[in-house]
Nucleic acid binder design. Structure first.
Lengths: 138, 138
DNA sequence: GCCAACAGGACCGTTTCACTCCGGTCTCGA
DNA sequence: TCGAGACCGGAGTGAAACGGTCCTGTTGGC
């Protein structure tokens, strides 16, 4: 289809939004998140690991362990989450790798892609988990 | 990688931009376009067929045949071209298929996706082939 | 009628997606 | 201290999409 988010990215947003509903520092287990958001747990495990590696979430091992946001929900954006899971957002190869597009300096198409990409990143970078979360749960 | 254009979409833009450099109605052969834009010819054939089916290009068979834009370059946008080749632009499944997202009415995430998608389509829908073409060739 | 050029369908190797599995490690709490 | 609960992380996997190729038409100009 092209230009579409991966499943992993979608799940990551849902999982993080779920965490954002709780008070800061609240720990939820893989199982809790998976059940609540209807995400296959074994897959979710991978996704959460990416988020931890990216510094967006923290994990607690051992009994009563789980995951929590690494910083306040208003300081994490959709863009952060998506890039953590799917890698850098690049709407076209030539906007990512300067080597790829030799004629980038003169090419009007290249400029158009850059503009499209900036717009997209602005929107995604402007939406915080806080604004995505429904009424918080105590 | 996610959120990235397909090769086919990229080639389609390049091919159409090539046609847009010439006076209206100018016919260029598959071979000409492929050589000029460094696109594998057998693959380009598929892409041009999609563009013809979508009504963006017209083809002329037989000797001295080839392809031309179906309408003036200022009336064809990047969005038109991409959708013709890669299908409808939908940044997430839930923005395409209303059935897919049961909670769409209440879901803040859904609204965010809709906004991101609209922004992207606005940008791509605002760029015409004419504005992409370098100085025309007589 | 020949040759140039598109039409279109079948095919195909590779990569990515979307998951799963499993052994390992850590930690709490009884 | 020991064991159950929970994350860690790497390997594996089936299906689908991507990115093409190829071959047999069919069309049309000369």
């Amino acid at each position: 289809m092209g230009l579409q988010l991966t499943r992993g990215g979608e799940y990551a947003i849902r999982a993080m939004t779920y965490l954002a509903r709780y008070p800061e520092g609240h720990v939820a287990s893989l199982r809790d998140i998976g059940r609540a958001q209807e995400i296959p747990e074994s897959f979710l495990a991978k996704i959460l690991q990416s988020l931890v590696h990216a510094g967006l979430a923290v994990s607690q091992r051992g009994a009563h362990g789980g995951f929590a946001l690494a910083r306040p929900a208003e300081q994490i954006t959709m863009r952060d989450v998506i890039e953590a899971v799917d890698g850098p957002i690049s709407v076209n190869l030539c906007t990512l790798d300067p080597e790829e597009c030799k004629r980038s300096s003169t090419c009007e198409v290249h400029k158009a892609w850059l503009r499209a990409q900036e717009q997209l990143m602005d929107v995604l970078g402007g939406v915080t988990l806080k604004s995505l979360a429904p009424q918080p749960v105590a």
